[in-house]
Computed example of a mutant assay.
Amino acid sequence: MCKRACALLKCYINGVQNLESLYKYCPVYNFENLENEYAIQNVLNNQVTFSKRTNFNDLFDSKIDFIIPTKSELRAVHVQLKGAEKHEFKQLFFGEAGQRNFEAFRRNVNQKFDEYLFFCLTDKPDNNLMWSHYANSHKGFCLEWNVKDINAEKVIYQDSIARFELLDVFKMQFGLLDNGEVGRKIWEALKIKLTEWEYESEYRVQFGSDMKPLINKQEPNYTLVSYKPEWITAIIFGCRMDKRAIAYLDEKLPAFIERRYAVERKSSIEIVVKH
């Protein structure tokens, strides 16, 4: 991977300044055919999967409550417009066609949200539920990432799904609101999950246009993105991971990646280094 492309992905960490590492749980299913195991081949090929929200396992993850503006809010925008834009806005959002246009507009905005891609991590390498849900019941592994090499932001947990004002998009399209500000609001909404998932302590990396040189493969619901091998500092083998898979990865991974092991204790998981 070229130096320029690497520099595009390496940037300041927003909200994780006090962390040294973040972690990615990875499942392994078929120990008879490790060459075709998706997570194993990803780490050996120095690539990660950025997924769309439609590919997430949580029904409500990044789901948005789109707020349709009131008539008074629409009138307030209308008076700020001039000429052809003023006439176009009135035709679109006032009168009998207004409600239909709102619904069509809401669907279009929702589809736009569906295009965003994320890479998800956590700050907890010893969470039993995470090992169970995302590492095939402890049969998989967990990768430790050096946070200085990735731009990750903390997920916000709350009791209801995110709200997003459609009026902000109207304002942007008619030049009354900055594109960057609307983009930030979209990203904030896409970082919200319900409180019941708080145990995951999740962080998200958003795929940006400056990462395009790093794309290895692009599919409808996910994109494979390359990274520098040294951005991975350790691999943690699961409590139930097959010895064949451990040996396979141990042989093929660079020596600078530390080998650690998740060990079952009486009521918890402990991460150890075996000498």
Rank of each mutant, 00 (worst) to 15 (best):
Q111F: 02
K148V: 04
I192Y: 04
Q158L: 09
K71S: 08
G175A: 13
S51Y: 01
F118M: 14
F256V: 09
Y248H: 14
T223H: 01
L34M: 11
G175D: 05
L166V: 13
K193P: 08
S132A: 15
A189F: 03
E219R: 13
E258Q: 12
V48M: 13
R259V: 01
K10G: 06
V48Q: 02
I161K: 06
F141V: 02
V225C: 11
Y203F: 11
E153F: 03
D168M: 12
E165S: 15
S267N: 13
L177N: 01
R100F: 00
L143D: 00
I40F: 11
W187F: 08
G15D: 14
Y23H: 04
G95A: 13
F141G: 01
T122W: 02
F102Q: 15
K63W: 07
V155C: 01
D178H: 12
D123W: 01
F164H: 03
K10V: 10
Q218M: 09
E96S: 06
T122M: 05
L81A: 09
L92R: 15
D210F: 08
I192P: 02
I186G: 00
L121W: 01
P229K: 10
S72C: 14
D250A: 08
K90G: 06
I67V: 15
K3N: 11
L22H: 02
F50L: 03
N46H: 15
P69R: 05
N128M: 08
N45C: 11
N179D: 12
Y222R: 02
M172I: 04
A245H: 00
K266C: 07
Y38P: 04
K243L: 11
K112V: 06
Y248K: 06
E35N: 10
D114N: 09
A7V: 05
N151C: 12
L117T: 05
